[in-house]
């Protein structure tokens, strides 16, 4: 099922992600850890560890340590960002690709990277590093109020409602979840909203919502499997949201599997998903 990639989530999200990635890439590395071993670019890493936040100028940056090496995950921005920082007091599942970009915040850059904050508390995850000379520059937002550019961008996004024209086709939408989580952040609810818009605009005949139980193969060979109850909860939450948004309940079918998806250590985040197929 992992080949069933999201095919209709495009436009603003992708643009934002590209801009952000470009920004991250442009950030200067003010220090590098010469003593660290070399990790081959392109290597995929999946690991669970305590996240670390560094109190850098402009905005904090987030890191995670794995096998003695520090990896850069992203910076604090806001809910419009593709990267959502993890949480102290919780371990994080980090799934990323080692990039050849200069270190940021002292960490090897993982890009792309998915970070899931795991639900259970781990009080040992409590490290805040000082800046130690590292800086973040040119971030879209600092630690204060929104710059006006952000506000303007949000308004522009709000105006970007797709106009659907016939012939209408079957569309597939995918909502991805953090590991062991049912919470849908704004980037996920935007997908649900898009499903509603398309389904109501074309007077869809059928919506199939299918939930999958995620798993992850870690770099150390261990396998993580999500709780069996999650696929059902996720599917029902999305069904309930669609109905609340005005989709006719009679056109919705749901199913879910409590059998874990098979992980292979490559983009395993795609296993924890709900797929929504809208049929005209």
């Amino acid at each position: 099922m992992k080949n069933h990639r999201m095919i209709s989530i495009r436009g603003s999200l992708g643009v934002i992600a590209s801009v952000l990635l470009a920004l991250f890439a442009a950030l200067p590395a003010h220090a590098s850890d010469k003593s660290a071993k070399t990790i081959a670019p392109g290597k995929r890493l999946s690991f669970v560890s305590c996240p670390i936040v560094r109190d850098t100028e402009m905005v904090p940056c987030w890191l995670a340590e794995y096998e003695g090496e520090l990896y850069y995950l992203g910076i604090q921005l806001d809910l419009q960002s593709e990267f959502f920082p993890p949480q102290l007091k919780h371990e994080a599942l980090v799934e990323g690709v080692v990039s050849d970009k200069p270190r940021i915040c002292g960490g090897i850059v993982l890009e792309p990277v998915k970070v899931s904050s795991l639900p259970e508390i781990n009080l040992s995850c409590n490290t805040i590093l000082p800046a130690e000379g590292y800086k973040i520059e040119n971030a879209r937002r600092g630690t204060g109020p929104d710059p006006d550019t952000l506000s303007a961008r949000n308004q522009a996004r709000a105006r970007q409602v797709e106009q659907y024209k016939p012939p209408y086709t079957q569309r597939t939408y995918t909502v991805y979840f953090d590991f062991d989580s049912t919470y849908m952040p704004s980037r996920s609810t935007r997908v649900v909203t898009e499903v509603m818009r398309y389904a109501t605009a074309i007077d869809a005949k059928h919506i199939q919502i299918t939930g999958y139980r995620g798993s992850a193969l870690l770099t150390n060979g261990k396998k993580m499997v999500e709780k069996a109850s999650l696929p059902e909860i996720r599917v029902k939450n999305i069904e309930s949201a669609l109905v609340d948004l005005g989709v006719k309940p009679s056109i919705i079918s749901t199913k879910w599997s409590d059998k874990p998806e098979k992980p292979d250590g490559i983009d395993d985040f795609e296993t924890r998903r709900v797929v929504i197929v809208v049929t005209p």
Binding site: P60, P85, G144
Partner: peptide, 11 residues
């Protein structure tokens, strides 16, 4: 816990 990170440095 809603995607902003813990801790979050803001005002």
């Amino acid at each position: 816990n809603i995607g902003l990170g813990n801790p979050l440095k803001r005002s």
